[in-house]
């Protein structure tokens, strides 16, 4: 079973049930956000630090480590 999401205009496949962070890491992505001009990705992994936030289907500030990836999710980078 697999789930496909779009990130950076690319289709990425993950395992069914994985979080968005899990899908991105599985595809070799370590970072997906800019903070103070530098790349950031997952840090606390349990929804506390807010470092991994992405825009999902137009909704901003979604924690990638908490949100289960759903088929067809469009995931976009954020910058602060």
């Amino acid at each position: 079973m697999s789930v496909r999401i779009r990130f950076d205009g690319e289709e990425i496949a993950g395992r069914d049930g994985q979080t968005i962070a899990g899908v991105l890491l599985g595809a070799g992505r370590r970072s997906w956000r800019l903070a103070g001009g530098a790349e950031r990705g997952v840090f606390c992994g349990i929804g506390v630090c807010q470092d991994c936030v992405v825009t999902v289907n137009g909704i901003e500030n979604v924690r990638a480590c908490q949100r289960t990836a759903l088929e067809g999710d469009v995931v976009e980078r954020e910058a602060r």
Partner: peptide
């Protein structure tokens, strides 16, 4: 760079 808990959570929850 992640927290030890993140390594644990990603391994357990996501197999990542």
């Amino acid at each position: 760079v992640i927290t030890a808990g993140a390594a644990q959570a990603l391994a357990k929850r996501d197999g990542a």
